[in-house]
């Protein structure tokens, strides 16, 4: 069992490594993708400078906390998109019968599918996250907390995408549901949760758990709380397990007409 897990992790690492090497063939494009993504994220500072010139405090969030929020959101997004980029195309993979190529592999289908590609620009997001942590005020403690919690956040984002994309095993237009869920996870992550109230806030901590992947980690980094830390880690494991089970249950329903594709 342990050897199997080790092998699977090794295959995932190799898949990521070779995808990255492929992307690095054109060095100028690779560097410009990473650099411009950092610049792209940084442009939002202007938006927040303007907003904080109108109101100094957004429900307990000042510019300093928003910088950390952006750091956590960018890093979470970066980890999910860099290592598991294909999880966000899973709906299309299922609907168009592209799973066939993975079914014949002697490794876990879900893990093989979602680690088949990397998004270079997401590397820029990950770097930007740490730049924001430095701007916020980096310490050894918050660096470790930031790293662990953004990895958990990234895995939560991937799990949510897998869960909603797995609906494609049952319904045709499930890509609309998964795309909407992914948009919600991304768009809401960069705004403080204090501006949302009532049912919106409830949704953000349940169906679309941006609260668990971004808001709670931000609070935990600002003021470390073992209880919050534990909740995030446990919920991450729970969501990953649910995603794995939902996908594999759906996989039993999968059928295709033997699509011929080449994976280069």
């Amino acid at each position: 069992m342990l050897t199997e897990v080790k092998n699977q992790i090794r295959v995932m690492a190799l898949s990521t490594k070779y995808s990255l090497m492929r992307e690095m063939l054109n060095k100028v494009t690779f560097i410009s993708n990473v650099f411009f993504m950092i610049l792209n994220n940084a442009s939002f500072i202007i938006q927040w400078l303007i907003l904080f010139s109108l109101k100094e405090d957004l429900g307990g969030f000042t510019l300093k906390e928003v910088i950390l929020l952006w750091g956590v959101a960018a890093s979470t997004f970066g980890i999910s998109r860099f290592f598991f980029s294909s999880a966000f195309k899973l709906s299309d993979t299922i609907t168009n019968g592209k799973l066939d190529a993975f079914l014949v592999l002697p490794k876990d289908v879900l893990l093989s599918v979602i680690t088949t590609d990397v998004s270079v620009s997401a590397l820029g997001d990950m770097i930007y996250g740490y730049i924001m942590l430095i701007v916020y005020g980096i310490t050894v403690e918050n660096f470790i907390t930031f790293t662990i919690l953004t990895i958990c956040g990234g895995l939560i984002v991937v799990s949510i995408s897998v869960i909603f994309s797995s609906l494609s095993f049952y319904i045709v237009k499930a890509d609309l549901v998964s795309d909407t869920a992914n948009s919600l996870m991304t768009n809401f992550a960069t705004y403080p949760d204090t501006i949302f109230k009532g049912i919106t806030k409830m949704i953000l901590y349940t169906i679309v758990p941006v609260g668990i992947s971004v808001y709670l980690p931000v609070r935990t980094i600002i003021k470390f709380n073992v209880y919050n830390f534990f909740i995030i880690v446990v919920l991450c494991i729970v969501l990953m397990t649910i995603a794995y089970m939902v996908f594999n249950r759906g996989l039993k329903k999968y059928s295709s007409s033997n699509l011929m594709i080449s994976r280069v």
Binding site: N26, V28, T29, S32, N33, F36, M37, L39, N40, S121
Partner: peptide
């Protein structure tokens, strides 16, 4: 002139 104009679009 440049292979990928995507980053310019982001800006």
């Amino acid at each position: 002139f440049i292979e990928d104009s995507g980053p310019l679009y982001w800006m």
